[in-house]
Write a protein that binds this DNA or RNA. Sequence first.
DNA 1: ACTCTCTCTTGATATTTATCAAGCAATTGG
DNA 2: CCAATTGCTTGATAAATATCAAGAGAGAGT
Lengths: 237, 237
Amino acid sequence: MRAQDMPAVRNLPLFAGVQDDSFEELVSAALFQHFPPQVRLIHEGDSADFLYILVEGSVELFACNDGRETSMAIIEPTSAFILAAVLSDAVCLMSARTLTPSRLLMIPAEHIKRHFAEDKMFAVAIATELSKAYRQLVKMHKEAKLRPATERLANYLLRLAASHGEASSFTLPADKRTIAALLSMTPENLSRSFGALNAHGVRIQGPVVHIDKPDALIAFAKPNPLIDDPEIGLSSR
Amino acid sequence: MRAQDMPAVRNLPLFAGVQDDSFEELVSAALFQHFPPQVRLIHEGDSADFLYILVEGSVELFACNDGRETSMAIIEPTSAFILAAVLSDAVCLMSARTLTPSRLLMIPAEHIKRHFAEDKMFAVAIATELSKAYRQLVKMHKEAKLRPATERLANYLLRLAASHGEASSFTLPADKRTIAALLSMTPENLSRSFGALNAHGVRIQGPVVHIDKPDALIAFAKPNPLIDDPEIGLSSR
DNA sequence: ACTCTCTCTTGATATTTATCAAGCAATTGG
DNA sequence: CCAATTGCTTGATAAATATCAAGAGAGAGT
């Protein structure tokens, strides 16, 4: 692991209250690995042997049932994942694969669980993270149940813009096919929905989105803080 | 609060590791209230002032957006709710209302947060509960994204049967209209889906479901442990 | 017993979303 | 440079789901 990557990991809310020596212990037990794109890191149903921390690149969480597959989240640095599975000592409910070349810190589950049981500050930080992760998932589920497809896309674009400092242009965090799955639509319908958003000030150039008329898009999307506001400080799944 | 209700609350996994005196402190600060059916307990967007514990009756968690409303969960005793909002010191993402006459213990959020910060065992128990709640929600979201409506219903019936000790008959936990919203369908389509399940050994008599041919229903539903298995010990939302 | 109300069901229709089938553009590999 | 592949788009069609409109049945109140 590169020295310059260290601060980002150390500064995760997850490790906020833990002592330096405890943190050192966790990191020294960890593996640090590079992966090319499209590498399957986790197979759903497997036991959760590591807490993964994405240091660079991007990772997709996805899930399958009866021949279908859908995307559950796109993860960007610096962010931990399968925290809940590690703590529950349970099998993973989601699979994970790299989308781009990625570097990951993998902390053995046993170490996480031991520190969790022994270190009050760590337990508090984990509970705080999990409560935010839970709330984020509630928001996702509300969106899925309460919005039609094109509105989901419109609000997703607004959230992306917000996460890029309200930039009027930004690049999609994954292939359109992956974005489509994330938004519970087919690639065909994503394409058509992008077309429909043209009338509301959105322009697409390959992987880059231009929001030419933010007000028009907002008027169409009707964003709702109880769905669209991010959980501040959330960096775990 | 009735003396006979105490053990069920005390035995919640949430309080498993807390000392008796701490538990007494929490309970003595709490309100205990009866509510008739259809009473709004929580409005989404309001701050989370209490951790609610349902002692008797049933409560629906639901959410609204842009004139639509959907059901997020049906809660039965003994179970705590809005734990995540209380810990995050944030507004509620879901509303709550009683479905039947209900009795609830309401523990002020401040007390929960103080004990959480001070009592390691409580923090550990909360994190453990939240990780299970998170995983339960992942399962719900997977189901919503990966299964068509009638299959969702079929698996829901199998889960209800399992929770009733694999009983071949049981009563639905809420009005069909609420069940429909929970399964992301209209009442009309729920009705038609029940009709479709007739061919797979399901018989409906008002609010009671008979599973006459469990094997046929299972063959149709194709249950998946990574969606349908309950998180054991989960009693919080 | 009798409305009245409410919930659920059923049928007809509309809308939304998915699937299938080309086709096009960009990229990759020879 | 030229296939060949890949990712996306577009159009036509099919399937799933929602909406609208009655109507039937059960329970509540008079």
